[in-house]
Amino acid sequence: MNLDIFVMNGYGVYVWSAFAFSFLVCFILFVKTKRTLKKLENEFKKEAMSLSDEKVSALKNKKVAQEILNTQQKAH
């Protein structure tokens, strides 16, 4: 097997760690953002479900609230 790509004439450790570090930071930020988003969507759904019927019908006229609930249904 050709190891040149990993060794890179001795510079491999710097190049690969730079790429790995960048990927790691980006990945952590992505996972954190995704988790917060999911959590907020779930909480929103829970609260919307606990509303009384008359409030739910008022909610139907709210565009954004409907969109949030719709994306929730798709995700499940």
Partner: peptide, 26 residues
């Protein structure tokens, strides 16, 4: 693209956070 993706996700979270507060006021 990565920046745009994270931005959109974060922005969406912020909007939901505000709408969640709005739910109580209906």
């Amino acid at each position: 693209l990565y920046c745009a993706l994270i931005f959109l996700m974060k922005y969406k979270s912020e909007v939901i956070r505000i709408k969640k507060k709005g739910l109580k006021k209906i």
